[in-house]
Design a protein around this nucleic acid. Structure first.
Lengths: 105, 105
DNA sequence: AAATATACCTCGTGATATGATGTATATCAT
DNA sequence: ATGATATACATCATATCACGAGGTATATTT
């Protein structure tokens, strides 16, 4: 997809991916793949940003001799998802404006 | 609204605003205000970008002794709107992913 | 005369996504 | 055994972009 539109949804997708169950980067990419594709560099950038913003916490573990970092959503992260739902209504309103203009043809 | 989400919609809104009828910057801002607010600096940046991308053409006029630049959508611009409609389906798919995860609570 | 509306523009800044690249271990196929 | 692929993390440079601040100029309203 064209990228621009996706941008605003990235943070929310990542938060959604860990909302009901802690997860780690590599797994998140695979889980989200059917819905939204993002590279590792993009995801780790986002995870770092969300961590700095207090939206999630990190727990380092070891699995089969490999490093694995589990991410856990915080209260602030949950609130961010709630805020998104409100913003989504505005997005729909904008979409309707575009469609309205589109139908004047 | 949060900004990030709006980003991907800005170009499309501007194209939609001139789709059925040529318009000019100052008017577009007022027309779009109920749906999406954008500053003059933002709009003129976008108009310049869309012009460079061949999505619209410009016609300079004079009105009451004041400069006025009318923008006209091109074939490429119309195609951009069509592409957006396809992308929108992906956006909805992503939204549903977020909501799905949200309901596991 | 002053304030507001109309109408355009540029520059600097901060935020951001992404490709390229790197590190390291485990597993699988030949 | 060895080479490829999968797992799993990270950083850096770059390009794009929205936006506030500030600027220019004329017409209309108070």
């Amino acid at each position: 997809m064209e990228g621009q539109l996706k941008r605003g949804l990235l943070d929310i997708c990542v938060l959604a991916a860990i909302k009901s169950k802690d997860s780690y980067g590599y797994k998140m990419i695979k889980d989200m793949k059917p819905y939204i594709e993002l590279s590792e560099s993009t995801l780790y950038t986002i995870l770092k940003r969300l961590e700095n913003a207090g939206m999630l916490t990190v727990r380092i573990t070891e699995h089969d001799g490999r490093l694995r970092k589990y991410y856990h959503i915080t209260e602030a992260g949950l609130r961010r998802i709630e805020d998104f739902k409100a913003e989504w209504k505005e997005v729909i309103s904008i979409y309707q404006y575009v469609m309205k203009e589109d139908c004047h043809e």
